[in-house]
Design a protein around this nucleic acid. Structure first.
Lengths: 147, 147
DNA sequence: CTGCAAGTTGAAGTTAACTTCAGCTCAAGC
DNA sequence: GCTTGAGCTGAAGTTAACTTCAACTTGCAG
């Protein structure tokens, strides 16, 4: 069992065969071919697919994932530290997303009490007259002043 | 200034006129018309738009937002407690999303140390042989057993 | 009254991330 | 060697949430 068929990789990774073909067209994963033109995946591809799935959970687009995967060495199977380096890249982004949602949660909790949701008064939908220079809309939550 | 033009509402809410027309077609907001067929928005629509923007941040689809807005009284302008009731609905969902991301962050932090990202061993991409009954893929993070 | 920014419409386009389809070929068990 | 499930391809379809376009109309300042 040196290599995997597309169906095997699909079951192992939890990603549909159609998605795996799509990832290959998009240059995210690679497959060799049998004499009969069927895909055969090296076991190392499992880890690439795992990386793709995790990065998607973090909220990274396939474009950026492709870019990250392109930075892996081509002449050898990536090591743990190669993967470690790549994973570290997403952590800051993930923490930012969590912070945004936590801020939203805290302010929404406050708003459940006051029921305002007012563009004039509510902290959630910060008043345009106080932050007019930053444009209208819920700036406070979406683009906090501290950032 | 009893009512707002579409341009005024756009500036006030931070939502593009095209999006406001789209929301109206989708039954999320309402506008009356002038003799010349131009939209005029009651100031109460500002709050509806604010609610839509916040719900989107929470990760709620327009379909669900429409459903929630449909539960507002039609015969009177919604009160603070009407809005409060609606906002409370999204809090649990928001907290779940935060929990998923925090779990992901914690495990990704661990994985940066080990660099594994392995479908066989890594906590992030839970082994199919241990949770085979729940299907393949990163079950541990996406659909935690406790749920 | 005129000019022109702002508004109107329906239809079509956009983006991401896939899925579905039709028509065909491959591979493995009996 | 036959059957049948698995795999192949390119093209088209899907969904959400809008945006863009073209052609036309309104409303208000001067």
């Amino acid at each position: 069992m040196e290599s995997l068929t597309i169906g095997e990789l699909a079951v192992r990774s939890g990603v549909a065969p159609s998605a795996l073909r799509f990832y290959e067209r998009e240059g995210l994963i690679h497959a060799s071919r049998t004499g009969g033109n069927q895909r055969r995946y090296d076991r190392a591809e499992l880890r690439r697919v795992a990386f793709i799935k995790i990065a998607q959970q973090v909220g990274v687009s396939l474009d950026e994932i492709r870019e990250a995967l392109a930075s892996l060495p081509e002449n050898r199977t990536p090591t743990k530290s190669d993967w470690s380096r790549l994973s570290a890249r997403w952590r800051h982004r993930l923490e930012e997303r969590i912070a945004v949602l936590e801020r939203l949660r805290d302010q929404l909790t406050g708003c459940i009490g006051c029921g305002c949701l007012s563009l004039q008064r509510c902290k959630l939908v910060n008043p345009s007259d106080r932050l007019a220079d930053r444009g209208a809309g819920p700036q406070m939550v979406l683009n906090p002043p501290s950032h």
